[in-house]
């Protein structure tokens, strides 16, 4: 029933789950057994049988569940304390949520969207904020969930085994709520240190195929939450066949989708709002490098 348990405290949470499950199953089956027995035994009975009252029984079924629920509360609370108590000197991962993507900032200053690399077996404190409405940072494999509330910081923590995990947005936040996913790549510490070196991305960038890189960015920077590649409109217009064509804007202007238009659309989307769509695209200024924008434009060009 439960997904893989990949954080340090997941097994503790699962234990509580299974204890409650066991107790519930017991009581449920007990009730079913009595119901079935009584129904079979007294069905179509025509005889008036003597009354039955039992204060002892009533006391028993008040006191026993009472004790049990206090036990359940205690177990749930104990595991909760672990979930909430961040170990000292945790690795601090800043996460900002916005409609509809996750922005990550690691302590070494790396900024990324919808994908982040994290060292394994290290306590990671997730510090959450939101730019617009409430979102919720949910990693089922970690048994971790916390709302990102605009106007304040909230936090949660985990310590994970190596692996690749999906982050889901669990608080309803609008049209693309169900597409607000991110990937947590948890890698062994040594590998993390290696990757952390400001790897020669820019250099490599120039030598990479910009269309392929653009496609990768389209997937990792969250464009795919709102833009399809096959012509069907989603939250935003499809990117297919966009380049070079005329676009009708909300304010009645008609512009040609050239490099500058696309660049502006990405960095400052509210400047030119496409007719029939809401101005909900987040501005990517500061989140994409020049090279990345170029690669995205090259990719969009290729979608004819």
């Amino acid at each position: 029933m439960l997904p893989e348990a990949a954080s340090s405290y997941a097994p503790a949470v699962d234990r509580v789950f299974w204890v409650i499950f066991g107790l519930s199953a017991f009581f449920f089956l007990l009730i079913v057994a009595f119901l079935v027995y009584f129904v079979l035994r007294y069905r179509n009975n025509r005889e008036v049988l003597p009354a039955f009252e039992s204060v002892h029984l009533e006391i028993a079924w008040t006191v026993i569940p009472f004790v049990l629920v206090i036990g359940i509360f205690y177990l749930g609370w104990k595991a909760f304390v672990i979930q909430r108590a961040v170990p000292e000197q945790a690795f601090e991962l800043q996460v900002n949520a916005r409609q509809w993507l996750w922005e990550f900032r690691t302590p070494d200053g790396q900024v990324s969207v919808n994908r982040v690399v994290i060292p394994a077996d290290t306590p990671v404190k997730v510090i959450l904020s939101s730019s617009d409405v409430i979102h919720s940072f949910y990693v089922p494999a970690f048994r971790m969930k916390m709302d990102a509330v605009p106007g304040r910081y909230t936090y949660a923590w985990f310590e994970a085994k190596p692996g690749t995990y999906t982050v889901l947005c669990a608080e309803y936040c609008g049209a693309a709520h169900s597409r607000m996913l991110a990937t947590l790549e948890v890698v062994p510490k040594e590998e993390y240190e290696k990757r952390k070196q400001p790897s020669a991305v820019p250099a490599a960038a120039t030598s990479r195929d910009p269309v392929a890189w653009g496609r990768e960015l389209y997937e990792t920077k969250g464009c795919n939450a709102c833009h399809s590649l096959d012509g069907t409109p989603g939250v935003g217009p499809s990117l297919k066949g966009l380049f070079g064509h005329e676009v009708r804007l909300q304010d009645g202007r008609v512009v040609k989708a050239d490099e500058n238009y696309i660049r502006r659309s990405i960095l400052d989307p509210t400047a030119d709002v496409v007719e029939g769509f809401n101005p909900v695209m987040p501005p990517f200024a500061g989140l994409l490098s020049e090279e990345e924008i170029n690669a995205l434009i090259a990719f969009i060009k290729s979608l004819q």
Binding site: V13, I20, I31, F73, W77, K78, E171
Partner: peptide, 26 residues
Amino acid sequence: ILLFTIGGLTGLFLGALSTDVHLHDT
């Protein structure tokens, strides 16, 4: 009796803090 008991008993999973963290809004 059968359905409501299931509904009520699953409320216990949600009332317990640590399991609710996982199950909330699912």
